[in-house]
Every structure is written in structure tokens, then in C-alpha cells.
Nucleic acid binder design. Structure first.
Lengths: 116, 116
DNA sequence: TCCCTATATCGATGAATGTCAATATCCAGT
DNA sequence: ACTGGATATTGACATTCATCGATATAGGGA
């Protein structure tokens, strides 16, 4: 609950035409910018990529720290950003936290950027 | 020439599979993140949107300051960021500067995010 | 040449962000 | 209950960024 203002990407994408079709309202531009900000970090892109390429598009947090070469708190922070933005979901299994790619979340953003 | 390290989005998109197919290298994650950062601002999204919706996907800078409600230097700065990132192109005609959407630049980013 | 207008650049400032070390929390096994 | 391991939170710090006012540059008339 530390970032209560974040909306899942689905909310921003459910409504509207791609941004090249008609001019964005300030509100919708804000929502889309928030989603893009969550993606606009090399570490977070790699985390998504690793999770997506794993079995069942799901990976344990314990397997994510080493490949990105950053500290455990930093990786935990990035994962939280991605969960808050709606790109990953989190499941606790015992001591371990598993992160799964939310189906369609990337496509929702993608659709907003496409002109066709 | 003030931001010489920026690559046009086309360079990042020309090469590779969507990020859900295989894990991103650090280098490619960096390139994509740079492109997404250029998009991840509400004002810049609105500027792109306005330009794209104009006649011939082109608009005069003089018509862009008022709709976004920010100062002229700030709008000029945002336009420069978008040009450097390869999303807009700039043409000088007399005293006026015209900005045009670079065809395919948004789709290039979009393709990288799509899983299908 | 001298203004006027359009745009870009500079310098400063406050806010947001990525990172880490230290610490807290939570769960499983003994 | 205690211990150990996995993850999250906190606090601090340096960097980046969005924004503005002031200024510079450049082009088109008169």
C-alpha cells in the first residue's frame, strides 16, 4: 500500500484508441506515462524478460537477484514496481516469492503505441 | 549534439525478438529502456499525440505550446528529447519549426513489447 | 540596418529515482 | 522456542529529470 495511486496497466489500456489516432487527454497521458515509466528501466526489462522466458512465465525471486547483478533489496524494489504497475503478479509459496507475467499486460501497452 | 549517446529507436528495434521470447542482454535492455524513457512522460505523449493527429502527421512548434500548458522552453526541451530518441523529425521552414512523426518508430517499440 | 517574432540554450531549483547497507518480517525445520 | 534463510522495508545518498525565467540565436519584414 505504499504506492496507492498506481493503476494497473489494464485500466489505462481498456478504454482508448492508440495515441496516434486522436489527441490524448491529460488524464490518459498520465496513466500511460505511469505504465511506461515502470517499463523504462533496463533492470526491470531484464526481470520481465527472465520471468517471461521461464517455465510457465513464472520465476522465483531467489533466481532473479544473481542474473541482474544487483543487491537483493534493489531487485525486490524493482519487482514491486512491476507488480504495482500490473505487469507481474506475486505468489508466496512457503518462504519463496514467485513472480509471474500478467498475460496481456505488455500487449495492452503495445496496442496503445501501435498506429495500425 | 548535446546528447550524443542517444540512439534512434530503430537501432534498438531492428535486431531482436520481443522481450518475452528470450532474455534480454544488458546492452539491449539499455537501448530499449532509453527509448521507453523518452516516451514515459505525459507531456511528451501528448505532444506525439497532437503531432500524429495533425495534417500529414506534422505540426508547427508554435501550435504545441498552448495545448500542453507549459512554458515555451519546456516544450522545446521535450521536442528535442523526442527528436533525439527518433520519434519525431524536425524541419525548419522560415522562422518556424515543424515536427513530424517518424513513420514506424512507435511500431518498432510496440513490436518489442508484444508477445505474439 | 533595426525591430519583431519564433525557437533554442543556459542556469537554477525542487522532485523523483536507482542503489545500497542495515534492519525488520515471515516461514520452515529442529 | 530457537535458529536460519528468503524477502520486504527503511533511511540515506547520488543522480537524473521536469520545469521555469532569463538570455541567446536566427529569420523575415520595414
Amino acid at each position: 500500500m505504499s504506492t496507492p495511486t498506481l493503476l494497473p496497466i489494464t485500466d489505462a489500456a481498456a478504454c482508448c484508441a492508440p495515441l496516434t489516432r486522436e489527441t490524448l487527454t491529460a488524464r490518459k497521458a498520465d496513466d500511460l506515462a505511469r505504465s511506461l515509466k515502470a517499463l523504462a528501466d533496463p533492470t526491470r526489462l531484464r526481470l520481465i524478460s527472465i520471468v517471461a522466458a521461464s517455465e510457465g512465465a513464472e520465476a522465483c525471486a531467489c533466481d532473479l537477484t544473481e542474473p541482474v547483478g544487483l543487491s537483493q533489496p534493489t531487485v525486490s524494489h524493482h519487482l514491486k514496481v512491476l507488480v504495482d504497475a500490473g505487469f507481474l503478479s506475486r505468489t508466496q509459496r512457503g518462504t519463496w516469492a514467485y513472480f509471474k507475467l500478467v498475460p496481456g499486460s505488455l500487449d495492452a501497452v503495445s496496442r496503445l503505441l501501435t498506429s495500425a
